[in-house]
Amino acid sequence: MGDFATFYANGGVFMHAIALCAILGLAVMVERFIFLFFRFNINGQQFFNQIQKLVMANNIDRAIKLCNAADKAALARVVKAGLTRANKSEADISAAIEESMLEVGPAINKRVPMIAAIANIATLLGLLGTIFGMLEAFRAVADAPADQRSTALARGIGIAMNTTGFGLMIAIPLLAAHIFISNLAKKISDEVELYSVKLENLLAARVRHS
């Protein structure tokens, strides 16, 4: 812990900005992970298979109750929107599903790009700190008295290296988290799109045969 405190202190003022990126990035990453993995996520195939059996058995109320049991999941919300219009026209069913998809789509992808943006900012702040550190090192060589030159030079190089290192330490995990969370959001979006089309076709066939 002492070594990190020294590392942080020797990095200069840019370390504070990079640390702020770390805190903000971590907060967004954790919030998105909890929201997507524990709230919006669901086993799409298993869920839709149950819905399909109930619809084919003409048990729409039971299917809606199944959606209510998983009311936080994006797919369940879209499916429920279609099921509540099951006895309407094909156009009404399609409109209800499309409207629900337009609501859940932005919620799924909300703040996901922000993680990558914060990682990039942390990297750029590290590079900016490197530039200021090297400028300080050059000034030390040019202007500092001979007995203070080595100390000033070491300080400038320390700022340059530490800010770069700290920026990368923050950016790399955030970019890795962004890849994981983006893939999770895409998986949820793809399932919503796939099974909403399947539901629309299923309900439309039911209307035509009723």
Results as ranks from 00 to 15, higher is better:
Phe33Gln: 07
Ile64Val: 12
Cys67Leu: 02
Lys65Pro: 00
Lys80Met: 14
Ala86Gly: 08
Ala74Phe: 08
Ile93Thr: 14
Ala122Gly: 06
Leu127Ser: 04
His178Tyr: 14
Glu98Thr: 05
Ala142Thr: 10
Ala91Gln: 11
Gly2Lys: 08
Val192Glu: 11
Leu24Glu: 11
Arg208Asn: 12
Ala116Phe: 03
Ala95Ile: 14
Val78Arg: 15
Ala122His: 01
Ile108Asp: 15
Leu184Arg: 07
Asp71Asn: 07
Asp147Val: 09
Ala177Tyr: 06
Phe7Gly: 00
Val207Ile: 12
Ala57Ile: 11
Tyr8Lys: 00
Ala144Lys: 05
Ile159Arg: 04
Gly44Ser: 09
Ala116Ile: 04
Lys110Arg: 14
Phe47Asp: 13
Ala144Val: 09
Phe138Gln: 01
His209Glu: 13
Leu20Tyr: 15
Ala185Val: 02
Glu90Cys: 01
Ser100Leu: 09
Ala140Gly: 13
Ala142His: 05
Glu31Gln: 09
Asn41Cys: 02
Lys110Ala: 15
Ser94Asn: 13
Ile118Asp: 10
Ala19Phe: 15
Pro145Thr: 14
Ile172Met: 12
Ala185Ile: 02
Ile131Ala: 09
Ala27Ser: 09
Ala69Asp: 15
Asn59Met: 04
Ser196Gly: 03
Leu175Lys: 04
Pro106Ser: 07
Glu136Tyr: 03
Leu153His: 03
Ala185Ser: 11
Ala176Lys: 00
Phe40Trp: 06
Ala73Val: 12
Ile170Gly: 00
Leu202Gly: 06
Met15Gly: 02
Ala140Asp: 08
Ala63Tyr: 09
Phe138Cys: 01
Phe132Cys: 04
Ser210Asn: 10
Ala171His: 05
Leu54Glu: 08
Ile51His: 09
Met101Tyr: 03
Ala9Gly: 05
Ser189His: 07
Gln148Leu: 15
Val78Tyr: 07
Ala63Pro: 03
Gly158Lys: 04
Gly2Tyr: 10
Met114Asp: 04
Lys80Pro: 01
Arg206Thr: 03
Leu102Ser: 06
Phe4Trp: 09
Ala27Gln: 05
Asn41Ser: 07
Gln46Val: 09
Ala142Pro: 06
Ile115Pro: 00
Ile18Ser: 06
Ile34Pro: 05
Arg208Ser: 13
Glu98Val: 04
Ile97Phe: 03
Leu128Glu: 13
Ala86Ile: 03
Asn49Trp: 10
Lys72Trp: 05
Ala137Asn: 06
Thr130Leu: 04
Met114Thr: 09
Glu103Asn: 10
Phe38Asn: 02
Glu31Arg: 02
Leu24Lys: 10
Lys72Ile: 05
Gly44Cys: 04
Lys186Phe: 05
Phe132His: 07
Ala116Thr: 03
Phe37Tyr: 08
Glu31Ile: 06
Leu124Asn: 10
Lys88His: 14
Leu83Gln: 14
Ala117Thr: 05
Ile157Thr: 11
Arg155Met: 01
Asp143Ala: 09
Asn162Ser: 04
Gly158Cys: 03
Gly82Met: 11
